[in-house]
């Protein structure tokens, strides 16, 4: 189901947690709310669920105003960060819970509930574990029970709060791929909250980057990574370098040196140059480049990270080079960013 959030504002005892946030979630979409802690992403998720009510603004489920509906009436599936499985119930009872508590008129028969719960356990690859208790499961298995339980009520929208936050790196990666598969197979509209950019970029159809109670940018993972629209997004997503530069006659300058990057159409004046460590080319020349002395090198998996002292700008940048390129400390390296973005103060 399509979910629209319109001009939502949420205050917790006068402190604004969300400020004029609007977001359209398309039906069947897998969308990530990404941001540092305190950015309001979990609050937004809980507002959509109905676990919080907005100070101002409206939430629409389809064409219906859901703002006045209780969490029970919204028919959502919520997966909590620490799963919140009912510890005194078996896996099967956990998954069936949403169906067994329905009033007699809307409740499927006992056999049907059991059949449906077992199907879901099969979908989340937990067949045979239905008699276990949550305490007897691993973290990843609990996560999958929580997801099956949320899906059992055939929710309008699936909401996941830091779904992989409490798992170790290996399980995390596996579950990520697996969640994408489940989503593609079931087609639930899904929103998940994460502070892990790899997770958001790898998994989501669209990523919503949030900061300080506002949405900074909404876009596909490619758009977010390749064309960040604010210094915050550029700095938050992936690695980045920042240099103070000056625009003069369509050229970029660091103090008295042109760095060989033309910025046609940019107004003259000071600016911040943002570029990623791998978006560079090495040069031999002396002019029209950024040059620095090697301060430190680190080998990280398939690349060599080189930290340079840029004397002129009195700052440091990090660039990524192929590992074959051996550099000694204090040797001089000249380069030029190939992809970059300017932000004014």
């Amino acid at each position: 189901m399509e979910v629209r959030v319109q001009n939502i504002r949420k205050e917790f005892s006068r402190f604004p947690a969300l400020n004029d946030v609007s977001l359209d979630i398309r039906s069947g979409e897998l969308i990530a709310l990404l941001g540092p802690s305190g950015s309001g992403k979990t609050t937004l998720l809980r507002l959509i669920a109905g676990l919080e009510s907005p100070t101002e603004g409206t939430v629409y489920f389809g064409n219906e105003d859901a703002s006045r509906k209780t969490v029970q009436q919204r028919n959502i599936g919520f997966v909590f960060q620490h799963y919140a499985l009912f510890r005194h119930m078996t896996v099967l009872d956990n998954v069936s819970f949403g169906l067994t508590i329905r009033p007699a008129g809307r409740r499927p028969s006992k056999d049907e509930i059991r059949k449906r719960a077992l199907e879901l356990l099969d979908l989340v690859q937990l067949s045979g574990l239905e008699k276990r208790y949550p305490a007897q499961l691993s973290g990843g298995q609990r996560q999958r029970v929580a997801l099956a339980r949320a899906m059992a009520v055939e929710p309008n929208v699936l909401l996941l709060d830091e779904p992989f936050g409490a798992l170790d790196a290996q399980v995390r990666k596996e579950l990520r791929r697996w969640l994408r598969e489940i989503h593609d197979r079931t087609g639930h509209t899904t929103v998940f909250v994460t502070h892990d950019q790899d997770e958001a970029l790898e998994l989501a159809d669209r990523v919503v980057v949030m900061s300080k109670g506002k949405i900074e940018q909404i876009g596909t993972p490619d758009e977010i990574y390749d064309t960040p629209n604010s210094p915050f997004v550029f700095g938050f997503i992936g690695e980045s370098n920042i240099l103070r530069v000056r625009v003069e006659n369509g050229q970029l300058w660091i103090k008295e040196h042109s760095i060989g990057v033309s910025a046609l159409g940019e107004a003259d004046g000071p600016a911040q140059l943002y570029f990623r460590p791998h978006d560079i080319e090495l040069l031999d020349g002396n002019g029209g480049c950024i040059a620095g002395l090697v301060a430190m090198t680190r080998r990280v998996a398939g690349t060599r990270h080189v930290e340079l002292d840029i004397g002129a700008a009195n700052s440091k940048v990090e660039i990524e080079l192929p590992p074959e390129k051996v550099t000694s400390d204090h040797s001089r390296i000249a380069f030029r960013p190939t992809r970059w973005k300017l932000f004014r103060d």
């Binding site: 676990l51 969490v71 029970q72 028919n75 919520f78 949403g98 508590i101 329905r102």
Partner: peptide
Amino acid sequence: EAALSLGA
């Protein structure tokens, strides 16, 4: 909250 979200 989990129980409420499931409709209880």
